[in-house]
Nucleic acid binder design. Sequence first.
DNA 1: GCCTGGGTTGGAACCGGTTTCAGCGATCTG
DNA 2: CAGATCGCTGAAACCGGTTCCAACCCAGGC
Lengths: 353, 353
Amino acid sequence: MTYDDNAGKRLGEMEAVPSGPAKIADVAAFAGVGVATVSRVLNGRANVADGTRERVLEAIKTLNYTPSSVARNLSLKRTLVVGVVTPFLTNPSPIERVRGIVTALGESEYDLALFDVESPGRQRRAFRLLADPHRTDGLLIVSMVPPVDEVARLQLAGIATVLVDGLVDGLPAVVIDDVDGGAMATRYLLELGHRRVAFIGDKPPDGFRHQSTGDRTAGYLRALAEYDVPVRPEYLREGTHSRHVARSIAEELLRLPERPTAIFAASDTQALGVLEAARALGIGVPDELSVIGFDDIEIASYAGLTTIRQPLFESGLRGAELLLAALAGNPPSARVETLHLDLIVRGTTRPPA
Amino acid sequence: MTYDDNAGKRLGEMEAVPSGPAKIADVAAFAGVGVATVSRVLNGRANVADGTRERVLEAIKTLNYTPSSVARNLSLKRTLVVGVVTPFLTNPSPIERVRGIVTALGESEYDLALFDVESPGRQRRAFRLLADPHRTDGLLIVSMVPPVDEVARLQLAGIATVLVDGLVDGLPAVVIDDVDGGAMATRYLLELGHRRVAFIGDKPPDGFRHQSTGDRTAGYLRALAEYDVPVRPEYLREGTHSRHVARSIAEELLRLPERPTAIFAASDTQALGVLEAARALGIGVPDELSVIGFDDIEIASYAGLTTIRQPLFESGLRGAELLLAALAGNPPSARVETLHLDLIVRGTTRPPA
DNA sequence: GCCTGGGTTGGAACCGGTTTCAGCGATCTG
DNA sequence: CAGATCGCTGAAACCGGTTCCAACCCAGGC
């Protein structure tokens, strides 16, 4: 008797039709099978008779049934969510990386929960949230180095983590060789004949860590050493990853009694600030000043900026792939993958006058 | 005696410590209360004795317990996830909007699942995924107009939806007045004295709908009419939201026997393409050509571009706020909120020679 | 003809929370 | 001092899936 169903429930429900969307029990009842069988069909298990499968599929269709991922995840003890933590969605480069991640994850069954952390406070909060194994299966940390204690929490909680544009002992990562990149840029300027080469580094704001800055500085210094060019402390500057800050630093550099004939900026965004400064001071680029950036963001080609290209989109894509592989149980390795850099010569560099 | 605690358990459990992370039952056992009481404490219900609450909180702390949101959501029949669908994270403006959304959602208990749809295929897939009430509680659709049948599905599934930079009958939305914006831009050029004013529209790729284009065109036409300037069909062009496409269209315009003295581009990205075209053809801006854009993206100030500013970040913020309010059950209204536009005069416009 | 074994199947336990509801002692009332 | 009321509490049902396990059916082997 189908009445039994309702009798079992609370008295007072007049509508025989199940109220909300169909659940697996409804499908089972409709198809005249058990819930286990429906579950088997849903998950494509082999051991279901063809006829039965047919009936179940039809029931699913007629009832317009979609399984609840929440219930499924509870049962499976998975969340099917990958967390992405990144600072500064204001900057073009993390965005490109995130695009790569979105693309890679789009192919998978995982959803992506995005956390933009603009302050150390929000950063802590994001990690506290995401280090919860109930919340995410895996984590992608983009363009930042998480605090050591947070890393410990993550590992303790057993959350698969991959760093994109960041490096931490024991965690797999997708990076570029920043030392090499810094050297490439500087070397190119030196090869052109420049000897008064300044560098504007990319200092993360308080509370954030990111090693690329230091490394690019190291590359700059290495290249100078290779060419026996003495380091001038007044040519070695640092500022946040911002066009405006870089612009004012560049104006200072260009007002030095012996101003540089070339400036290497640690990011394209900052290089644009340098170009602005030159424009404001009436200094011709590249005639009187060469400028080279780093990243090759979209706008660099508009500005005709010579730069070191790093595969931003690909870094996100690759990081997500590594994470998915780890989640699939494949390689629990802590490999570090280093992507390739290219020198892109455009119009802001030339030999000194 | 502290031994009592363990004495209660002991039997049968060789490993006294529960295997995985602590669950609510562990906390209850440790505190010597029922799970219901723990749940009450967790959710800040009033009817728990102070002493009991104290003990539970301590148990939570010692066991390092964090509740499973998956289980919680299953019980509560909520997902605590807001889906964000947007095309073209390649463009700067949707990104700014998403940043606003991330910011607003950061304050709430909701997570954000991001879907970038770059093709109509992915678009369909995203909607099919997100129209599942098991998956998201609410949806934010950014810079696109969803297909009518998908809207129907959403409403049927009872998923709260808010459009940001898009308009659909019956759904709440945050928009700008594109007709007015188009007219503002055009009117400014006309007031400067230009009479040969061209327009480059922003045509969405096949499979995507977005009404702003048409509306900005209407604004352009309206302003021309106000100033009794006849429409020249050859001045009215359209291309995808891309610098490169806009550039080649602009080159065509600038090669016309009677070339325009001013060009209004439907987006800053496209305006940059126009500037590139002028540069390539050796046409001085603003001396020989005035250019005005739309959006006021970050790079516009670098390029010194005159433009119509629309509050991108705020649109996302506001849209998320509306959605959160709807999810909180407050205003089930289908209001349309119109944000304010500003003319930002920079260096790419001036009266004709 | 009976026993064995493989393929199907459904009942029920389980995932980890929330919430109803009944029970309990303590206080208030008459 | 009995009875009603109130605050606090825990057992158990429930959310909607997955999966273990036992039961069942039927064909094949001896």
